[in-house]
Computed example of a mutant assay.
Amino acid sequence: MDWQRDLPTWPHHAWSKRVVCAPHRWHVQEHGEGPTLLFLHGAGASTHSWNAMMTDLAEDHHVVAIDLPGHGFTVMGANNRSGLETMAEDIAALCTQENWQPTKIAAHSAGAAIALQLCEQHLTTHGKPSILAINPAFSDFDGLAGILFPIIAKSLAVNPLTPWLFTRGPDALARAQRLIASTGSTIPAEQLALYARLLKNRRHVQGALFMMAQWSLRDFKHCMSRSQTPIEIIVGLNDRAVPPETTANLQKTMPNSNLTKLADLGHLAHEEAPDLFVSRVRSMG
């Protein structure tokens, strides 16, 4: 996304700033006073995913949202640092540099895995934050798909023509509608329009592909089973991206965790019912 062209019409652009913390040039949105609440979006999204929640929670929290490497307005400084461990390392470095000491993390999908890795391996000096994990992606694809998907994504990511092929054509809104519908969610029109803008941006598409290509949770089950991080897991029963039953089975292996199931909400549950999740954040210890 172009800072000069796109940022002035992006949600909460007045809270935005660029932060250089090696190896990336980050897009950060920061506002409010109180306990620090860090937002981590999932693959293919950006800070806009937390738009409505941030508006309310900035009234009594110091809210911090970032675009993951290669996503939205964050410019990657290294293409090989889009995996789970490396992103957690780089976000930890950013937190240290900016003197952020999160007491709570709200995280969605793949962002929830990053949040847990961050808490278990890095954010230990001032006590572990509590995590609100929304439809967390805590497992790799099963079987042959788990082998082939990263290979295909890697091949697409390194092909310079791929972002052009993904973003060509005038009807980005229709593509966004199909993509969001496939997750089981129905989101407001203004949110849908923002996803359409992201889908038209070649650098964002390539950043999402790099993340998918490098994504592996092979060693993550060990992290989950030994975790002492307080984590509240919320699944939307209409989620078509991450099967709710898979998440429910994994939650049983996680100490210090709770699971809540919500009917009639899909993968982007926090964009469908932001008020509900604002209340959940405020009730977190």
Rank of each mutant, 00 (worst) to 15 (best):
H13P: 13
T124M: 04
I105Y: 05
A22D: 03
D67I: 00
S139W: 05
L123R: 06
Q97V: 00
E98V: 00
G70T: 11
I91D: 00
T124N: 09
A43V: 15
I114C: 01
V63Y: 14
E89F: 03
K104L: 07
F73Q: 14
A58W: 06
W50N: 08
G127R: 00
A137L: 13
E85C: 12
P8S: 09
T124F: 05
M76Q: 15
T86N: 09
L68V: 10
A92D: 09
A112P: 14
D142R: 14
H41D: 05
A110P: 02
H13G: 06
A137G: 15
L7F: 05
A45M: 06
D60M: 10
L40Y: 10
S16A: 06
A113G: 01
E120H: 05
T36Y: 11
P35C: 10
P8T: 11
N51C: 12
G72S: 11
H12W: 09
L84G: 03
T36N: 10
D60H: 12
T36P: 07
L68S: 11
L118M: 01
H61A: 09
L132Y: 12
A14S: 15
S46C: 15
A78I: 01
K128E: 09
V63R: 12
P35A: 14
L40G: 04
V20P: 00
L7M: 11
H24E: 01
V64E: 03
F141I: 05
M53A: 07
L37W: 14
H27F: 10
G111W: 05
W10H: 11
S49L: 13
T9L: 08
A106E: 02
D56N: 13
L37S: 14
L132D: 03
D67L: 02
R18F: 04
A65W: 01
S109P: 07
A58V: 02
A43N: 11
V75M: 10
E33P: 02
H71W: 01
H31F: 09
A14Q: 15
Q29Y: 12
W26L: 00
T74H: 01
N135R: 01
A43Y: 09
V20K: 00
L116E: 01
V19P: 00
N135W: 01
N99A: 11
T125E: 14
G72V: 13
S82F: 02
P69M: 05
W10G: 10
H61Q: 09
A115V: 03
L38D: 07
A107H: 11
L37M: 13
F73A: 12
D90A: 02
G72K: 11
H62F: 10
G143Q: 03
I66K: 03
S109W: 05
T74Y: 04
Q121E: 14
C95G: 03
L7I: 08
H126E: 09
L84E: 04
L84V: 07
V75F: 07
G83V: 13
S109E: 09
L94C: 00
P136D: 09
P8Y: 11
S49W: 15
